[in-house]
Simulated assay, not measured.
Amino acid sequence: MQTNSTPPAYTSLVAVGDSFTEGMSDLLPDGSYRGWADLLAARMAARTPGFRYANLAVRGKLIQQIVDEQVPLAAAMRPDVITLVGGLNDTLRPKCDMVRVRDLLTEAVEGLAPHCERLVLMRSPGRQGPVLDRFRPRMEELFACVDELAAKHDAVVVDLYGAPSLGDPRLWDVDRLHLTHEGHRRVAEAVWQELGHDAEDAEWRTPMAATPPPGWRARRVADVRFTRQYLLPWIARRLTGRSSGDGLPAKRPDLLPYELTHEDPA
């Protein structure tokens, strides 16, 4: 964690990635998603007049799509800060060529690093459970590549995977793939600190207080709901070659001033 009594006065931020950066499942009253990138932008805007923000992330995107569709746009904007989180959707596919994923992630980093003052990469969090256990080797191979690229290109790495607190199932939505608001809030705090700002919440790594585990019936009801609402549709999309992000535009496609609203934390 970096801290500095006079942190850099970054004036612009562009976020690149998939559903994690789009903000699912940090749901706002109007049905849209907020997420850690919006929370981070709000903090930065509150301290820097005229702060500009773009979020190019779209749910379901694979690393090839991020390289093709988002990296050139983000590079052309030449912001102070670019965040890049991608490749995890690839690792969750039944068939995954990790050599290709690493090569594409390298291409993304090399396409972004020269065009910003600070590139931020992440070791993504993983929900504790059988899915994480199954795909852990691929994820850790991806994160090793992240570390190597960061060292080569002087990028910041936010190690969310190394924070056991973010693996707590209570910080994950019922779809078991996306963080709740509290999870996204902790991610925003982690990035904030790694960018050199003093901690607003020094305890983002601290596990949540222990609570009694749900009973057998509650777990079975949750499993059935998860299977019907999320797992079966996810399998159907994989079998038909579709994505949850097909046809969706970027969340915030233009690098424009970020206007604080009543939804933003003080």
Rank of each mutant, 00 (worst) to 15 (best):
M1K: 07
Q2V: 13
Q2K: 14
P7A: 00
P7H: 07
P8R: 10
P8I: 02
T11C: 11
S12I: 00
A15H: 01
D18K: 06
T21E: 07
E22L: 07
S25C: 12
S25D: 14
D26P: 05
W36Y: 14
L39E: 15
L39W: 11
A42W: 00
M44C: 01
M44K: 05
A46R: 12
T48P: 04
F51Y: 05
L56Q: 09
Q64W: 09
D68K: 14
E69R: 03
Q70H: 07
V71M: 03
P72Y: 03
A75S: 06
M77Q: 07
M77N: 04
P79W: 03
D80K: 08
V85K: 10
N89L: 06
K95G: 07
C96G: 10
V101T: 01
V101H: 02
A113N: 06
L119D: 11
R123Y: 02
R127L: 11
P130F: 03
P130S: 02
L132Y: 15
R134K: 11
F135D: 14
M139W: 15
E140L: 12
E140H: 06
E141M: 11
E141L: 12
V146T: 14
V146D: 14
V146Q: 10
L149M: 05
H153C: 05
H153G: 04
D154A: 10
A155E: 06
V156M: 11
Y161T: 01
G162Y: 08
A163R: 05
L166W: 04
G167M: 06
D168V: 01
W172G: 01
W172I: 00
L179K: 01
E182W: 01
R185M: 08
R186G: 04
E189L: 02
A190G: 01
V191D: 03
L195W: 02
L195P: 00
L195C: 00
D198R: 12
A199K: 03
T206Q: 10
A210H: 09
P214T: 03
R217E: 09
R219N: 15
V221A: 15
V221P: 07
A222C: 07
V224I: 14
R225T: 03
R228P: 00
R228D: 07
Y230H: 13
L231H: 11
L232N: 06
R238Y: 08
R238P: 01
L239I: 03
D254Y: 09
L256T: 13
H262A: 15
D264Q: 13
P265L: 10
A266I: 05
